[in-house]
Design a protein around this nucleic acid. Structure first.
Lengths: 372, 372
DNA sequence: ATGAAAGCGCTAACAT
DNA sequence: ATGTTAGCGCTTTCAT
């Protein structure tokens, strides 16, 4: 390396440091630093002189050096499943707004919902000495990755999903209640054969009592199952379809809708991406929503109000989930020693037009799919 | 600050450093660092011993200290308008994938399309000594913010929008061609009163020759205008509506659609967010698409294929825009001294069902809006 | 192959 | 109010 660590760059210019500014302003390094960093006591005159010199020379503070000596980076790490997922984009924005307002920056990583990728991301952020981390854990069960954060002595706040075996601040939504209510709409309309679809990874078929990788999906499944129980549907677990990412959401949806034995008359989509896929497939198959198939989903994605029919959804305060998580984290970083809290934010129903009574009620199976 | 800079954290544990590892492995700091950092020459035996000690003690490298001495952070800064905007989320993901593959991390900031916010974001990232920056500039005209990056000696790559007065690598899409083609579809169908809507800030009404803050919007406007010219529409500039953010997209759309003097029969939406707003308003007003109003847009947002009717769009290779920008930046960081390039990526048309002939052709104005 | 020592840019005691 | 000095954790000559 030819120009490493010598404060030079490709253009050969010298990076101007406090020492340079100090020299130009004819004061000591310490005084210059005080004037620049706005701490300690400096006389008006000197402050002005130093700042003028800094301006003149084009001084830019080196945040890394500062972190080295103060031990604080004023940076938060955030690990999300995939920033392209509107849920995470919104939550990240919420966190970002709160962080910025409090003088913190954000380092972002995608875990792709994969444990190893998540581990790497966490390693990087820890190495960069973030003051604390916000993570939507890839797994609520295997918390090794999360433990390394705690072990490194960094405050950690979980969002969207909890990790029951870990005592840390957590911000989630009331998924069980929401799922129950959402599913209840369907059973009230007369549906009995309702599919729940999630992309979460899960070996084999779902069976009651299975521990899921994400508490939020687990809660949703719980609420779903209990709503079916309430409606007297036998063996509700058979209607829970996980692993949709591996198979491909559209593929799974197609398989489900074309399975006349199963005779699915309604779908609960665990997020807006799934809802969109189901919507597409239904249309491609000539299934009329809600006439032939009712559809409800989590998350009030912007487009859900624009389709025909508009989709009934359980909205989550996504922005606030990120924001509140950031608030808790910043409190901790500030030295708050209160016991860990779990904030459960309410979801709320937005009733639209995607529910209708099942076409044949309980009397399925029935003839093949029909067109409009 | 009680525990600053002393390598301690809230839990009182000592951060383990190379010195600790060296002591444990009974070698010098230099040797330990060589073994750990995988550089220089170390004997097998010593390497193993050091790595074992590191493992044992739970050593975590301090990336900041490393950057301090090497001058490289292996970190890229990226500044986008708003990460919640699917365009930026996708581009960011593209950049992130390329960056990660090359061993770089990403620091993300939102500019909110505001110059001052952008300046702050850039300041922060420069302070953190990113190795280079990716930015979708809030302004293509006022390039002061961008110049500070260049002045700081950091490689810079622009994406989505160019800055003609600056000689830097740039990745954009062929917006003029795309807009021309998209608008041409409308004129070919017989439309003459076509509104172009963008959220870009612009003082007063648009007039031919005005310089716009974003080259991508400027190119789109150019293509739009030239398509109208080709169709023999007089004074096409009057159909260009900017500033939609300030007024509110839905509000503007409503105003436009209700203006019977103007008699707009089609809309070109400059991005998918605008398209969605127009779609909503049209529906609220009882305007049938495409019967009463044709609609086309930029960006193949996932939902545009799911509405009724599905929307005809000009798709951009968004992921690739981010990815290519990151590639160029990493080349630069690697010391590539080639002259700056501008990569113009092709857009491609996805024809769907949102275009129909205008209901009255040129004979507008006509009676009030009607319901379906 | 290994070690000793200097230095990256900054802040934080501790003087004065 | 200002200056001196040491040190954050790492890499990098330069010796040996």
């Amino acid at each position: 390396m030819s120009e490493a660590g010598n404060g030079r760059h490709g253009n050969g210019r010298h990076e101007v440091t406090v020492a340079d500014v100090a020299a130009a302003a004819k004061v000591s390094k310490a005084t210059a630093a005080r004037a620049l960093g706005d701490y300690g006591a400096v006389s008006e005159a000197v402050r002005d002189r130093v700042q003028a010199a800094a301006e003149e020379l084009g001084y830019r503070p080196n945040a890394l050096a500062r972190t080295m000596s103060t031990g604080r980076s004023n940076t938060l790490g955030i690990v999300v499943g995939d920033i392209e997922n509107p849920f995470f984009a919104q939550a990240t924005r919420g966190a970002s707004d709160v962080a910025n307002a409090a003088g913190f920056d954000l380092i972002l990583s995608n875990s792709d919902e994969d444990g190893d990728t998540e581990a790497k991301a966490i390693g990087v952020q820890l190495a960069k000495r973030v003051d604390g981390m916000l993570v939507a854990p890839a797994s609520s069960v295997d918390v090794e990755n999360l433990r390394t954060i705690v072990a490194a002595g960094r405050p950690l706040v979980l969002f969207d999903r909890a990790a029951p075996s870990l005592e840390v601040d957590t911000v989630i939504a009331a998924n069980r209640t929401g799922a129950r209510q959402l599913t209840g709409l369907l059973t009230a309309a007369g549906h009995r054969r309702i599919a729940f679809i999630s992309t979460i990874a899960h070996p084999d078929g779902y069976r009651l009592g299975d521990v899921l990788g994400s508490t939020s999906v687990a809660e949703r499944v719980d609420g779903f199952v209990s709503a079916l129980d309430d409606a007297g549907v036998p063996d509700p677990a058979r209607f829970v379809h996980l692993n949709a990412r591996r198979e491909g959401v559209e593929h799974l949806a197609r398989r489900l809708l074309e399975d006349h034995e199963a005779g699915i008359t309604a779908v609960v989509a665990s997020d807006s991406l799934i809802a969109l896929a189901v919507f597409r497939v239904a249309r491609a198959l000539g299934r009329n929503i809600p006439g032939d198939l009712s559809l409800v989903a989590f998350d009030d994605a912007d487009w859900t109000g624009a389709t025909t029919p508009a989709i009934t959804v359980m909205a989550q305060p996504i922005h606030e989930i990120g924001a509140e998580a950031a608030r808790l984290l910043i409190q901790r970083i500030g030295g708050d020693g209160r016991p860990p809290v779990t904030r459960v934010l309410d979801q709320h129903l937005i009733a639209r037009e995607s529910i209708a009574p099942p076409i044949d009620g309980e009397t399925r199976p029935v003839a093949g799919s029909r067109t409009l």
